[in-house]
Structures are given as structure tokens and as C-alpha cells.
Design a protein around this nucleic acid. Structure first.
Lengths: 240, 240
DNA sequence: TGCATTGTAACTCATTTAGTTACAACAAAT
DNA sequence: ATTTGTTGTAACTAAATGAGTTACAATGCA
């Protein structure tokens, strides 16, 4: 019994028993309830309702008798249908949500993003909005590598890093910070909260984004106050 | 609060509270926890963990403060990601299942299919395997209409119906049964179980499929015994 | 200082799913 | 016909999750 397959099927809305029974049946082709029970580990007394469930969900076919025989519907067909249903559902939700979303939301100047995907999304959005100038303070080469494509499109790109050699195989022209000034980016513990900044980007002297780990949590902070961006830029000048 | 939207989002894996909070936030653009609570109906004391959940799932961004402000991530982006994830998950499951499924399953001669989709699937499969000759007994024009495309490809198609005029706008050449012989297809109650046959198809004198409602349940029975198919065909001849 | 709001933590209740027990219906074998 | 094992149904308990509530500390505001 393949644990991965069961997990995958559960993500797609089946219960553990349903997933185990279906996977087993796919492997066997055709079987009695007892066989499915023995191979899948689903309790025998439950295998009947589970298989009936699967039949009404269209995963399984059967022919009654003593014993009743069961067979899995071809997985590619089942999965194709599942995909169509889910995609349709998503499309419906998208358009419904977008119609709610018509009124532009007045955006406030500061935002935090936590989820890994949310951060990626925001950073890409941020980089996409860069008009001409982008300034980056960075200590993590991975950060630059991840957004290499987007960064390549920026006209006036200036990058300042803590240790030049960490970045040399990336193909970007980077400057090293003045000795002593890298402390602004060092791991630090403030009020018992550890913080580690991976990078800071400033776009067109208008908005900036900070990426790092604060209190053990990965985090991006978007700041759209030109004042702050200017201050940050001033720091840049100071660090040259 | 749009009930449909919440339902749609739940199907995609959100809980009721999460769905309500997210939908509300999409509608508002930007809001405090309290506002989300008031507009969504989610208990105020729960709105905080719900919104935090949504943030780690990438549906929501926020900026801490007093009060903390929340904002929905653009629905099209969120939904697109969701779709990509689900489709990837489905593709993975499909290939895993297919690799289990390699050994051909020796097929037994009779099969029952219950789910609406399962029936469609089987009938299409059945029609796709017709080599040259297909015989149909039918009392439901919908049945033929549904599979019109597949039926069009059949070389030698003979259709026998109970009442000719019901089928006249379908574009098929149909024969009417002899008076009295339509009783084989009439609604009947046998042993307290009502049965209603919509149609019977016989393919190449090899296999046949019966579609109808038995005991209040929609059902298709696939029979791959040439003997039976031949018998059924003999009935056809008798009914001409 | 008092008072409402914000935020956290813990609880209860209901629903769903996992796993068990008891037993009737049936088939085969002595 | 009686025993024995299998098939199938029904109902139960236990665990997990989500919905809804209560209590209270921290914060901000008059």
C-alpha cells in the first residue's frame, strides 16, 4: 500500500478509507470486498459502505452477487473528471470574487506578508512595478537568484552586499558595504525576538520591501512611503 | 454575504469561517479584524486565528498595529495558484495510479454502474468500442440526444423505439416496435422494486448495455456475453 | 480613573471519520 | 439438518476537526 498515493488522493477530497480502497482496487483491477479489505487494511465491516461511496462518486463500478465484485474505473478518466470539476469550481469562484472586488481598495502604506508564496507574489509584484531605479541591500545570494529574471529587466540596478565573494557566481555587479556597516543587517535579538534580514529593496525612491525572518517567522514588509524610501536610500549613500 | 461564494471556497478546501472572512475581505479591500467580524458573521474572538490562518495560506496580508489591518490578496492570483497546485496534485496522483494499474485487469462479463457520471463514462466507452454494428432499443429521446455525437460515427446503426413521433426531431432513422412488444420496456414493479428501462444497446453481437432506473436508482448494466447479446438481438428480429 | 476595544487562550458542542462489536443472511461441507 | 465459515448490515465508541462561547489580560482612549 503506497502511502504517497493515499495522501495525494486525500488532498483531492477522498477520506483515508476511500483512498486506500480505491488505490488497492486500481492495483488489483478487479476484486471482492474481502480482498480489498485485506490488501488495503480498511476494516472489513466498513469496506462495503466505502466501496458503495466510491461507486456513487464514480470511482468504482461493481456487479452484485455473492460475493459482489468490484473494479476501479480507469484512473486517468476519473482524474480527468476531477480536474475538470475543480477547475470549473475555481473559475466560478474567481469570477464571483472579482465581481465583489470591483471597488478599488485604497491601499495603506505598510503591509506585512507571511506565507512563503505570499512573499514571492509580493516581491514579484514589487519588482514588476519598478520604473527605472532599484536599490538592493542583500546578504542572501538565494534571494537574488530567485528573482534573477525579474531583476534582469531593471534599467538602473544597484546592489550592495555584505560579502562580495558570496555573490560572484550570480552575474550581477555588486558593491560591498563599508566595513562595520554590515551590522545593520546582522542577525540580532531585540526584546527577545530574533531577527534576520535577508534583503531590502528600494524602488524609484517611492516604495521599499524588507525580506527576512523575524521571531522565527519568514516575513516581508512592504512600505510605500516615499519618506522611508528616501531615508533608506540615504543610508545607501552613507554606506558607499 | 454571498452564500454561493462561501460554498465555492469551501469546496476548494477553506473552512466556513475562512471562506466568509476571505470573501468579506475581498469585498472590502482593506479592513480591521472587527470589521471583518461584523460583516462576515464570524465570531469576533475567532477572527484573529482565522485571519492568521489565511495569512499563512497566502490568502491575506496584514500589517500589525492597533488595530491590525488586513487585506485580501488579489483573488485572481490566489485562485491561479490554487489551480496550479490542485492540477499538479492531480497529475501526480494520475501517474502514480497508472503505474499501479499496469497489469491488465481480467474483465468479468457483467458490470453495474451507479453514478450519473459513471454511466456516461461507460456508455461513451461502450460506443467508442463499437466496431460496425449497433442496435438500440430506446424509449427516451434524451438518451439518444446525449450521445448523438458518438452515435453519428457508427456505421450500421439500427434504432427501435416505442413511439416514433417522440424521436422525429432527432434526425435518426428509427423503427417503431410492433404493437404489444413495447411492454418489455414499460415501467414495471417486480418484487416491490420498480424498474424503468430507458434503453438497451447491443454492439457487434458481442456486448450490450442496459440503461434505466431500478429501485429508484439510476443504473447501467454492461454485459459482455455474446450469448446474451445474440439473444437480445433475436428479440430485435422478433419485434420487427 | 474608568470604559470600551483589541487580542489571546481556553473551553464546549456538533459533525465527520476511524475503528469496533454484534448479528442476520447465506453458502458450502460434514 | 447441522455445523462452520463467509458475506453483508447496522449500530456503536473514540478521535479529530470545525463551529460557537466564555473569561480575561493588554491596550488605547475619554
Amino acid at each position: 500500500m503506497q502511502e504517497d498515493i493515499v495522501e495525494g488522493l486525500r488532498k483531492l477530497g477522498l477520506t483515508e478509507y476511500e483512498a486506500k480502497a480505491y488505490a488497492t482496487l486500481v492495483g488489483r483491477g478487479e476484486a471482492t470486498a474481502r480482498e480489498v479489505h485485506e490488501l488495503s487494511g480498511v476494516p472489513r465491516t466498513r469496506i462495503y459502505d466505502i466501496l458503495k461511496d466510491l461507486a456513487t462518486k464514480g470511482f468504482v463500478e461493481y456487479v452484485e452477487g455473492s460475493p459482489t465484485y468490484y473494479r476501479a474505473v480507469e484512473p486517468d478518466r476519473v482524474m480527468e473528471r476531477l480536474r475538470d470539476e475543480l477547475v470549473a469550481s475555481i473559475d466560478r469562484s474567481t469570477s464571483e470574487l472579482l465581481s465583489l472586488n470591483l471597488e478599488a481598495h485604497g491601499s495603506s502604506p505598510v503591509w506585512c506578508v507571511r506565507s512563503e508564496w505570499g512573499i514571492k507574489n509580493r516581491v514579484k509584484d514589487f519588482l514588476g512595478r519598478v520604473d527605472s531605479e532599484l536599490i538592493i541591500f542583500c546578504r542572501s545570494p538565494e534571494l537574488l537568484r530567485e528573482y534573477k529574471a525579474e531583476l534582469g529587466k531593471v534599467e538602473n540596478l544597484r546592489i550592495k552586499v555584505d560579502k562580495k565573494e558570496k555573490f560572484k557566481d550570480l552575474g550581477f555587479r555588486v558593491l560591498e558595504m563599508k566595513a562595520g556597516s554590515e551590522r545593520f543587517f546582522k542577525d540580532a535579538i531585540i526584546d527577545g525576538i530574533s531577527s534576520r534580514i535577508d534583503g531590502l529593496m528600494i524602488s524609484d525612491e517611492r516604495s521599499s520591501i524588507v525580506i527576512g525572518t523575524i521571531g522565527g517567522e519568514r516575513l516581508a514588509i512592504i512600505i510605500k512611503l516615499p519618506v522611508i524610501a528616501l531615508l533608506q536610500k540615504a543610508v545607501w549613500e552613507a554606506l558607499v
